[in-house]
Design a protein around this nucleic acid. Structure first.
Lengths: 197, 197
DNA sequence: GGTTTTTTTTAACATATGTAAAAGGATTCC
DNA sequence: GGAATCCTTTTACATATGTTAAAAAAAACC
């Protein structure tokens, strides 16, 4: 296999993911491929540290990670990202400000990193790339709006049951303490909810 | 004044708003102007009814409105929009599905409506228009992500105080029952919080 | 394989918010 | 301007979740 073919082999799941939003010309794919790098990170390590400005959008090829931050000294999980999804600290990516959040692996993981300054430059030449990412982030925006409704008008117990139903392997792969902070409750409270079943 | 100049006079605040995100060519402005209409709605009337699919993005020129829905028969306010801001039910706008939410005025109001199917068509011809709305919705996405943190890790009392500080005239212009449901608490609970001061 | 560390559960008590009902104020409307 | 409606507060009680501490269970490490 040539180095080039090898690269595309590595990026295959990423381009499959993209195609669910928007078809891309070969030229666009080439350009995107040229700004991607593959990263391997062991379990429980930081992929991106707290305090750094987000300049990379990651695609989870293997494994699992979370965005987290500290609130009054307490570790809070903002979100999880499983295989075949994108993850980025958007409040830093779109503002250029340093992020108060970090990205940490929860298993030995492999990511495809897309350099965001280079990506944003590609937007000028390739409107279809800009469109692709517009659609991706519009969908993420809609999910976030829906999550607010979920947080505000369901009990912690309902949110826990919904979460387990929508990500059945979450319980096997993620410590309960992270699930608790993601749900906005304490470990103790989550333990009480689980004890009911 | 010619009809054309009159139109642009009406749309001036909208284009000023746009310019804070992205400069537009005259051609782009003409095209956008051609898909805008002005709407006047009296107080407490629906601008967009529950159940209809969102095909218009509104700019609040005068007055005030809210996005609301019913949760188990209870009226919930999802968000407010004051003068010089955009409002749309994005979960319907970006998915094409009927919205479970409505938009209601809280004062006699005036809106500029932008027809979204026509707008999305303009994206093909005018990448700068697509870019403008990409940036607008990226910023809205970031705000929504930040709001989740605010909801999940602050008490209702803290959220109430923050809200009053960030929108001082909200209290004069919006009934407390809507503020309560926006904060995710009952009227009774909000009344107790207010009684402390 | 045993020790140490981390994770999860349990217990006891404190507090914030919910629910329901009633009363007081304010506004609307004829 | 009086009646009706809507909005806000208050009260009493119920419940969910938080806090702290300790015990139990599981996982990580030499």
């Amino acid at each position: 296999m040539t180095p080039d073919a090898n690269l595309h082999q590595n990026l295959l799941p990423l381009f499959q993911y993209f195609e669910s939003y928007q078809n891309l010309s070969s030229a666009s794919k080439e350009e995107i491929a040229s700004i991607c790098t593959t990263v391997q990170i062991p379990k429980n390590k930081d992929l991106q540290a707290i305090g750094h400005t987000c300049r990379t959008i990651y695609f989870v090829k293997k494994g699992l990670c979370r965005i987290y931050y500290y609130k009054d000294g307490v570790d809070i999980t903002e979100s999880f990202a499983f295989e075949n999804s994108l993850i980025a600290r958007v409040e830093s990516l779109f503002t250029g400000k340093p992020s108060k959040k970090g990205i940490q692996t929860l298993e030995d993981s492999e990511f495809i990193g897309i350099a965001s300054p280079a990506l944003f430059d590609l937007y000028d030449q390739f409107p279809e790339i800009e469109r692709l990412f517009r659609k991706i982030f519009e969908a993420a925006y809609v999910e976030t709006v829906n999550r607010i409704e979920n947080i505000q008008f369901h009990t912690a117990e309902e949110r826990y049951n919904d979460l387990v139903k929508s990500s059945p392997d979450l319980l096997q792969r993620v410590p309960l303490k992270h699930i608790a902070s993601y749900l906005g409750i304490t470990q103790v409270s989550l333990s009480r909810i689980r004890a009911k079943y």
